[in-house]
Design a protein around this nucleic acid. Structure first.
Lengths: 301, 301
DNA sequence: TCCTTTGTTTTGTCCTGGACAAATAGTACT
DNA sequence: AGTACTATTTGTCCAGGACAAAACAAAGGA
């Protein structure tokens, strides 16, 4: 077998495990133990990379690396997601319709998926579409990915197609003029954009003026953007995948850096368990986003 | 001055300079020299982070860190881009029209920009629009960003709005059925998607069946996706910003990992200076992408 | 029985300082 | 002016130590 081998940087890229972690695991747990090239540098065979990806996925579900590494390969792939706390069994609204959409993605049938989504959009209208279709669907996909029934590339396909539907819908809305000026973006290392798009749709429906800047803005650039656009609100989105531990520090740092005139709002499933911070508004749900806009208007009337 | 300070991980996120680089610079050049927190860990004040971002930008233009760090702050910001080799002064087609579009972005006038783009799209048709508007525009933005006349957030706004126009245009095309099945994505750490969208537009216009998977797919997942979708072609995009040195190894690695039945194509401004690789087709321009599709059809007739 | 508090283990990240090869610049020679 | 060769610059890797925050387990109290 000609496994040319991945160097440590390639493994970091592919698995999301930092070089430090890879080295310290090798020291502590005796896995992974890569080959060495002629210069004594680590060279990971493809099988180890595959195993590492699996371990990483299970870790994201709450398992601990020490246990996982000690588990033989066969058992590993059978491990169930280990969600913490209350896992409400997904709101039961329209379960079958959503399942059907997921099936289309599973079948890799992009065309049929897009059609079905457009149909739902037309039937439900944008607001209900976002709240009753896209939001629960995204959640389902996250769960499916967690329990292994969705592959990475299926999740990518879902995201890409859904983005298109949403963006298209947003494009048809009249440009907002009355409301607050909302700058939408995410911090570096947070590349999930569906949450931002949902928020944008909601805000745009309320007539707010949205400035979508895509994902991954360095904090100091967010400040410059907020100043340049004279934004009333800076809205950030955090996905579940974003390392929770970093969020409070990040928000505080950004709050200190932003002009005092700009409010800082944060939303997304990643902030569910974050405790309140001074000067930052945490929006747990899309409904709260709507009321937040109304409250802002009331305060600035 | 209450500079709360960025820890080394935050600086890496915000500047794109790795922790290793930050530490080795401190050792070698005596900059940046951060404060230390109570545990002896580095704490970078905001000014240093700003300077680092500037240095990084100039490095991406071909300057060398040793010189830059020795340069006093005032001179730094005045440094011109130092492009290597032949810098054709941007094809002169329709210069004023493009400049006008750039001005709209500079004025942060999203609505006017979108309108102007839609108008051009309607006038030129999708193919010419991609080749004569989006491609040169993207290039201009890159140059503007290099010489400092564009801010990060302006580039983000440009990208976000342009993506929308392109995606919307692609959505109106009939789903391809005859051509090769093309899987479009990018490798981890390569998040620029405009190149991919341009390629998708071109391929879709040729009637090829496109499977857009967004950006940042781990190599081993690209293989799985190619197998699952039975892709004839895997098309990758590399922007100029992507570290050139890594590209050959990456492509070779992916080539070894992909099923032999799938061709591997790579495009984007990042591959301009890459030398030919066995089993990989390098597409320097969008025109070549079109002819590549035709050649594929001829070979598989 | 459930919840809170306290101790213990696990785990990620940071640190120092050394090494080396690839890329780039500089120099000599045809 | 081009080409071959040498010197410098620069990014990345390595080892192994340290430590605090998070996760867990145990003990105590309502």
């Amino acid at each position: 077998m000609n496994t040319p081998g991945f160097n440590i940087a390639a493994v970091e890229r592919d698995t999301g495990l930092s070089k430090d972690v890879l080295r310290v695991w090798e020291r502590r747990y005796g896995f992974p133990v890569p080959e060495r090239d002629s210069h004594g540098e680590r060279l990971y065979p493809a099988e180890q990379v595959t195993r590492l990806r699996l371990i990483k996925r299970l870790m994201d579900q709450g398992h601990r690396p020490g246990k996982l590494i000690a588990t033989p390969a066969e058992e590993l792939s059978a491990l169930a997601p280990r969600r913490s706390g209350q896992m409400e069994p997904t709101a039961q609204s329209d379960t079958s319709g959503l399942a059907e959409l997921l099936t289309l993605i599973k079948q890799h049938d992009a065309t049929a998926y897009l059609q079905a989504m457009q149909q739902r959009l037309a039937r439900q209208g944008l607001q209900r579409f976002v709240q009753d279709t896209i939001a629960p669907l995204t959640r389902r996909v996250g769960e499916a990915w967690e329990d292994g029934s969705f592959e990475v590339f299926e999740e990518h396909l879902f995201t890409e197609l859904t983005k298109r539907v949403l963006r298209q819908a947003i494009a048809t809305l009249p440009p907002g003029v009355r409301g607050p000026r909302v700058l939408l973006t995410s911090v570096p290392d947070e590349q999930h954009i569906l949450g931002l798009l949902m928020a944008e749709a909601i805000f745009a429906l309320e007539g707010a003026e949205c400035i979508p800047l895509g994902t991954q803005m360095p904090l100091l650039e967010i400040r410059r953007a907020a100043e340049a656009h004279q934004a009333d609100i800076v809205a950030l989105s955090f996905s579940v995948a974003f390392p929770q531990r970093q969020i409070p520090a990040l928000l505080q740092q950004l709050r200190e850096v932003l002009p005092a005139s700009a409010e800082l709002w944060a939303g997304g499933s990643g902030i569910a368990r974050i405790s309140p911070l001074p000067g930052v508004r945490l929006l747990g749900t899309l409904e709260r986003a709507i009321s937040a806009i109304e409250e802002w208007r009331a305060a600035h009337a």
